[in-house]
Structures are given as structure tokens and as C-alpha cells.
Amino acid sequence: MDIPKIPLGKAVEWLEHWLELYFGPVFDLILTVIGGMVQGIETGLTILPALVVIVLIAALSYWIGKWRLALFAVVGLLLIDNLGLWGPTMQSLALVLTASILAVVIGVPIGILCAQSNNFKNIVTPILDFMQTMPAFVYLLPAVSFFSLGVVPGVIASIIFAIPPTIRLTNLGIRQVSEELVEAADAFGSTPWQKLIKLQLPLAMPTMMAGINQTIMLSLSMVVISSMIGSQGVGTYVYRAVSQAKTGAGFEAGIAIVIIAILLDRMTQNLLKPKHK
């Protein structure tokens, strides 16, 4: 006997239509806010000449890390500029920074709530498992349905794909704080808010930064995928090179992504380390 197929796909499409019908203004607001945020960051990165931006990024790299990181920033960014990929790379960087900032702003409070409540953690954990195992391409479908083509659905898909590490490691970092220290804070009459701000978050910060680092890397990995739905940037060059079998052009665009990935990775890793020049 044939078992009737569960109409899961139709249910998802019905939910999508229902959300579009009743929450259209909310999606329009999100489209405006995220679009403006991406445009603002991109303008900040491109309004100045490339050499000036390179010097500023190198100075920031030197302050955060070591002189080797600053040297890598100069050499890598000059190579990107020489390859003629400066503009697209800054567009991709604006997308990555926007997605990462929003993922951290949303993910850290959720991680804190998970650390404070086991019931909330038990609800969120299966959702995070689902988000991390679902193929990244699938996130593009509802994003395009709600926000049309362009950079905004790419940012939304990047947030969904990249936010789980921030939530998980924020929860883990707070839970790893020594129980003796928490009891000492309670003994001194600290409120839950004071205990969180002055004790748990500072001690959990290294673990949280590891999660934020992974979130940034996952956001960057979505650059090429989001180019399929109209997101501008260096990912478009990779996608075009693949579709046209242009190995050289694809390699150049890939190098630009690798340079930005290494630079962001080293900067976030060194953010909380003592600065030894």
C-alpha cells in the first residue's frame, strides 16, 4: 500500500505566502535598514582612495596584531588593487561586515539566554543544528522570495548560515565560568545583571571571540554563493569565471577572497591578545 506523501513542501510555500501577505511592511523595513547599512559601509570603504584605505587598514592591523599582520595587509591589499578587484572586494567586505555585525548583535543575546536557561537552550539547540546542516543554497530561496534579488537577501542568508557559532560559543563561554566565582559574586550581593557584565562576559570573551571569528569566516564563505542571487562583489567574478571556464580570472578573484579571509581571521584572533610589537 502506498503511503500518501506528506505535503511538507506545500506547507512551506503556504507559510511563505502567509508571511509575505501579513508581514510585507516588516520585510520592507528590513530591506531598507540592511540595504542602507551595506551601502554605508561600502561608501566608507570606497570614498577614499585605495592607498589611503590600505594605510588605515595596515595601521589597524598593526595596533591589533603585530607588524607581520600589518605587512601582510599592505602586500595583500596592494595585490588586490593591482588585479583590478579593489571595488568588488570592498563590496564583498561590506556584505561580510554587515552580516557579521548583525549576526553578533542577534547571536550574543540569544547565547546569553541559552546560558541562563536550560529550557531555552533545549529549544534553540535543535534549531541551530538545523541551520548548520541545511545546505547554504536553500537559504537563498526564501531570502529571494521576501527581499527580491540583490545584496540584502545575500546578507540575510549569510546571517542565517553564520550565526550558530556565535550563539553556541557565547553559551559555552558563560557556562564555563567557574562556579566558585559565580558563588563568590552572589555572596557579595551582585545582581544577575552585575554578575553577567562584570564577571561572566569578561571571562567568557575569549570563547565568544572564537565564535565571532567562525561567524565572520562563514559569512565570507557565502560571498560566492550569494553572487548567484545578484549580490555584487568579488563573488560575482568567481561565479562568472566558473560558468565561463576562465580559470585565470577565477584564481585572481579567489586570491582576493583568501587575502580578506586571512586578514579578518588574524585580526579577530589577535583582538584580545596582548599586543607585543
Rank of each mutant, 00 (worst) to 15 (best):
I123T: 11
P142K: 02
P192S: 03
A162D: 08
V152E: 02
A245N: 11
V74G: 09
L128D: 03
D186C: 07
G189V: 06
S221D: 10
G24N: 14
T133G: 09
L8P: 04
G150S: 05
A241P: 01
T207C: 10
W86A: 08
V75E: 05
L60C: 08
V55G: 05
L45C: 03
I260Q: 06
G250A: 10
N122W: 15
E183L: 12
A58G: 03
V38N: 06
F137I: 15
A184H: 06
M131H: 04
A249S: 10
F72R: 07
I225T: 00
V242P: 00
E179L: 12
I260L: 15
V155D: 01
L220T: 01
L141R: 07
N82I: 11
P135F: 04
P202F: 06
I225D: 00
I110E: 03
S148K: 12
A249P: 00
V52R: 09
G154Y: 00
Q194A: 12
R266N: 08
F130M: 15
L264P: 03
G250Y: 09
L199E: 08
K121A: 13
M205A: 12
L95C: 02
P135G: 04
G254A: 08
I110Y: 04
K275Q: 13
L29A: 15
L169G: 01
S227Y: 00
W67H: 10
L71N: 08
L149P: 04
S219N: 13
V55K: 03
I260A: 09
R266D: 03
M228D: 02
S227F: 01
P135W: 01
K5M: 11
L69R: 01
P7F: 11
A73S: 15
L45Y: 04
M205N: 05
L199F: 04
T207R: 06
M205V: 05
A70H: 02
I163Q: 06
Q200D: 13
A50W: 10
G235Q: 02
I255M: 13
L263W: 03
P142Q: 05
A73Q: 05
A59H: 10
S117Y: 09
E180F: 06
K277Y: 14
T43F: 14
